[in-house]
């Protein structure tokens, strides 16, 4: 059985209007116990709840903002921004060469505190013709992302919304650390919605599903995160990470050219903590490979994966 992440369970939103729904602490504790995760159950049992047993929204928000702030430190140390630009730079070059006029819009789905978008805005790494937008289902997190962006005078935007309803049209959709939150069927829906939109490409980074990932996640979250919730969810997410094959299969639902960059067979697991599944409109593949140069050998499509390897 997949491990559950506490942060997925202690907040709930109405899928139609994004309204915050009450979460009963006892129900979450029970769910975690039933999944055999006594430690997670204890962590949740220690969270504050009102007399009605509903988890206190303000306390949960504070906790999640704290955990995401620590999570951002991992992204900083692992240089997630640069890793993304390494691929997104050439992708935008490819888009520019095919004659599509700018400005282009990059939308980070499930942006959390918006580190990636704010880092891109602060560094200008993708160029002035790229508009930067972050989207998240969690109003407290996007609110904080927006506050942080304004505090530093960064030119980017944050929007409250659901990944499956795509509140913002994009030229390119991206995400980091979000895919493992979705089941395989949901993942296909997520990609399908992007394929049906006018977007030219998407590029979603998630934890590389290697044997090393849970061990590495344990070491890192132990060394760098303080709250037990962050430590727990860090390891759980590494365990839940989708395999290369599962990602390619799901991405095929978009009806675009689905590719993996630096999958297991093309990269050293010690050097690749997050790797993306991407898809481009078919005419973009050749210019993307040209813009990537030698690095394009790390870009593999489903012809490199045998169907039985799932």
């Amino acid at each position: 059985m997949d491990r559950l992440e506490i942060s997925d369970l202690i907040v709930a939103f109405d899928p139609h209007d994004g309204r915050r729904l009450p979460v009963r602490r006892a129900e979450v504790v029970e769910q975690l116990r039933a999944a055999g995760d006594a430690r997670a159950a204890r962590i949740v049992a220690g969270l504050p709840a009102g007399p009605d047993g509903v988890l206190e929204p303000a306390a949960v928000d504070r906790l999640l903002i704290g955990v995401h702030t620590e999570l951002q430190r991992l992204s900083e140390e692992l240089r997630i921004g640069r890793r993304l630009v390494h691929l997104l730079g050439p992708l935008l070059t490819a888009i520019r060469t095919t004659g599509v006029r700018g400005p282009y819009r990059l939308v980070d789905v499930g942006c959390g505190l918006g580190y990636l978008i704010r880092w891109l805005a602060a560094t200008g790494a993708l160029g002035p013709d790229v508009e930067l937008v972050g989207v998240d289902l969690d109003a407290a997190l996007v609110g904080e992302a927006d506050r942080l962006a304004r505090a530093e005078g960064l030119s980017c935007r944050f929007v409250h919304g659901d990944a499956f309803a795509l509140p913002e049209a994009a030229t390119v959709y991206v995400s980091t650390g979000v895919l493992h939150h979705f089941s395989e069927p949901a993942l296909a829906d997520f990609f399908r919605a992007q394929g049906a939109s006018p977007a030219l490409a998407f590029c979603h980074y998630d934890i590389a599903a290697t044997g090393l990932a849970p061990v590495g996640a344990w070491v890192f979250h132990r060394a760098r995160m303080r709250h037990p919730l962050g430590r727990h969810d860090g390891v759980a997410s590494a365990r839940r990470a989708h395999s290369d094959e599962a990602l390619l299969r799901a991405a095929a639902a978009a009806g675009m050219r689905a590719l993996l960059y630096e999958p297991r067979r093309a990269a050293n697991p010690f050097c690749t903590t997050l790797r993306p599944v991407l898809a481009v409109r078919p005419p973009l593949e050749a210019p993307l490979r040209a813009a990537l140069g030698r690095a394009s050998r790390r870009l593999l499509g489903d012809e490199h994966f045998t169907p039985a390897a799932a």
Partner: peptide, 18 residues
């Protein structure tokens, strides 16, 4: 470069803190 930098973090700095 960042790939080797990741390696330094994963097998060096992270575990060394612990």
């Amino acid at each position: 470069p960042f790939r080797a930098g990741t390696l330094a973090m994963v097998i060096g700095l992270g575990p060394l803190t612990l």
